[in-house]
Design a protein around this nucleic acid. Structure first.
Lengths: 326, 326
DNA sequence: CTGAAAGCGCTAACAA
DNA sequence: TTGTTAGCGCTTTCAG
């Protein structure tokens, strides 16, 4: 039903070159010929075949976005932003979800490379030298976000340590004396990438240790809710620091079941500032990820192909919302 | 850095055809030659150029997914599912977000067609004959989901009327005498597609009118929260039916501010069963969209290219969660 | 201003 | 078993 350039050329009794000059309005063509060709094109519903064009030009105007999942609102918002920015620059998005599966991450990345996307934005689930050279083998501009891989890969993420430090200082200054850290540090597979969480943990420990008499307890297993259920919060003024709002909400729900009040009996803080918090009482303290900025930096660095020059390494400062849960 | 088939052929001192037989292990090649070529390929990091392959084969193994946004958890979950199913079938996903902008929807769809995706899953924001023939002009298998366009397009959605009817029956049987309907019916642009909401509204009206003495009030404007703020709920036993959980949560928040209790002072029900409801008290009554089923039907119908044969038209039955808010 | 021809990288039919 | 060749649809250089 739809025609291609060759057929158009025949229909108009001109050569391929002329058709091309008309369609992509290049100079060097009689305005009337152009007009005629354009009308014929519209009449026959000509649609350029971008696969052919991309092959010819060695450029696809597509970027690959590879991330853990879309269930976490952080990622869906990120995808939204990347897609939005790409759209404005006439780029299109190939999406791949890894489910934190390292094999799948590699396959997805390989596919992106074979599809010759112009660049890749990657929230990595893998790390290590092997992975880093695997990335190099893809031979494409790659921007890592959130979790750092290497100093050899451009990166944009959060200034995690410092924000956690600020948070912990604030918590301590409110009189809390026992701090829990909730985050899946224990999930670490051989080459798993837990950069963000580790940074946050490091910031947590550093800051607490710079004070005297503050107790720290780490809950890194998936059964953190059960573990907290066995804690007696009346003995010591306690606060729970979570690396994600979801953890905090799970905990809040359980505390409520146990009849404990937040912040009356225990303080609670999340991370990410997901939309759902709007509907939660008490307003949860949290840290707002500058997602839009992150997406836009990631995208623009890829366009600039900063690959070869100085490897950019950007840390953004998130905003703390103190809410009413501390 | 990376080689192509031609270079591989030179490196191995064989012909292009032989290289191809080795790489795609087609028969008719000496096992040793194949071995040698494969080693060479690995050594030089050969990566097939899928753009070229796709051009040659006239098939991309990609599907386009075009939807409103990713902020609404319903859509991000849908994207997740589509991506997951596609992955299992060795298909890849091109994502486009329309922000309910009809021009953008058309551009996105046009791009998908030019990119020669093998099929498109569309949650449409447009409707009407014009749009329907526009879709036809794309000359590609298209599956519409959620909002119906036409009987000429395969569709999978909800049995909206019947589920709302069941819901309203339940509400009435609980003794409610005044029912509010909250949904953005008024957003309807010239060719806007509000199929789902209209269906729900129709079901709402039908069911109420089959009873005696039940009052119905429709709130179709964005200021529904303010409008509800002016309602005196003490005069009549009232319930609020929302077309989306988000509306219900906004309302719940405001009711709480006003010191009203749910369901004590007023009943409330949402739609979609978003994850965030886990953390809301009281447990909101809602309707669970069978997203996985929807995604998998949409995908498989596209693969079967049911385009030409009988146009499938599938309505799924969602599950009602009665929660504690009614 | 227009046409002819080569080539992007891969596939597949046809020869040898 | 291997090689040659044409062609997918488009872009672009070089002639005319």
């Amino acid at each position: 039903m739809s025609v291609n350039t060759t057929q158009l050329a025949e229909l108009c009794r001109v050569s391929l070159g002329t058709v091309d000059r008309a369609l992509r309005n290049r100079p060097g063509i009689n305005p009337e010929t152009r007009q005629r060709i354009l009308e014929m094109a519209k009449l026959h519903g000509y649609k350029p075949n971008l696969v052919a064009r991309n092959l010819k030009l060695g450029k696809t105007n597509e970027i690959g976005l590879v991330l853990h999942d879309l269930e976490n609102e952080f990622f869906s918002e990120l995808t939204n932003q990347v897609q939005e920015i790409a759209w404005r620059h006439n780029y299109y998005v190939q999406l791949a979800i890894t489910r934190r599966d390292s094999a799948r991450e590699r396959l997805a990345l390989e596919h992106m490379a074979e599809r010759r996307v112009d660049g890749i934005i990657l929230f990595p689930t893998c790390s290590g030298n092997d992975f880093s050279s695997f990335l190099r083998s893809l031979d494409r501009p790659i921007m890592t976000i959130g979790n750092k891989v290497d100093s050899s890969w451009p990166f944009v993420g959060l200034r995690d340590r410092s924000v956690i430090s600020e948070l912990v200082e604030g918590i301590i200054s409110k009189g809390y004396r026992r701090l829990f850290f909730v985050g899946p540090l224990a999930n670490k597979a051989a080459d798993g990438n837990l950069y963000e969480i580790e940074e946050r943990y490091a910031g947590f420990v550093e800051t607490i240790e710079s004070h005297h008499g503050i107790q720290q307890i780490v809950l890194s297993e998936p059964d953190y809710v059960e573990q907290l259920a066995r804690v007696d919060f009346s003995s010591e003024r306690s606060a729970i620091v979570c690396v994600s709002d979801i953890f905090a909400l799970e905990i809040l729900r359980d505390l409520r079941r146990r009849g404990l009040s937040v912040p009356g009996d225990v303080g609670l803080v999340g991370f990410d500032s997901i939309h759902a918090l709007r509907y939660i009482v008490p307003a949860l303290a949290t840290v707002e990820y500058p997602i839009h900025e992150m997406a836009s930096i990631a995208f623009s660095k890829i366009l600039e192909k900063t690959k070869e020059s100085l490897v950019p390494f950007i840390e953004l400062d998130p905003v703390i919302h103190w809410g009413e849960s501390l």
